[in-house]
């Protein structure tokens, strides 16, 4: 039960737990009642947002010792892949939504 105890008594862990629970509800709340037309762009936008994992990649990269080539290579690869996720995700979403913008003006 020790691990469970830490979850609730350690202030840092408890804070993280709170963020997780609240974020879950927030995610559900934010998404409900979306018109089906927007499902694809929304998925794509969410896809870009989880690219936030790039921050982890930057931290890994920035901490890698200069002689640890394995960590340097993997970290470098992680930064590239994470950036692809973020940039590609946002640009693709924007391109999808650009179409929606166009038709609005014509209305």
């Amino acid at each position: 039960m020790n691990a469970l105890d830490t979850l609730f008594t350690d202030p840092a862990t408890y804070r993280l737990l709170t963020i997780v629970i609240l974020s879950i509800f927030l995610g559900i709340e934010v998404i409900s009642r979306v018109p089906s037309v927007l499902h694809t762009p929304l998925m794509s936008g969410a896809n870009a947002i989880h690219g936030v994992v790039i921050i982890g990649a930057i931290i890994v990269m920035g901490q890698a010792p200069a002689d640890d080539y394995l960590a340097l290579t993997l970290g470098f690869l992680a930064v590239i892949l994470g950036t692809l996720n973020v940039v590609g995700g946002f640009v693709v979403t924007d391109r999808m939504l650009e179409m929606f913008g166009k038709k609005k003006k014509k209305k």
Binding site: I24, L26, G27
Partner: peptide, 15 residues
């Protein structure tokens, strides 16, 4: 990372 990740996790499930 936590909020972004969990947000997408739960919103993605609902979606």
């Amino acid at each position: 990372m936590l909020t972004g990740g969990i947000l997408v996790g739960s919103a993605g499930t609902i979606l």
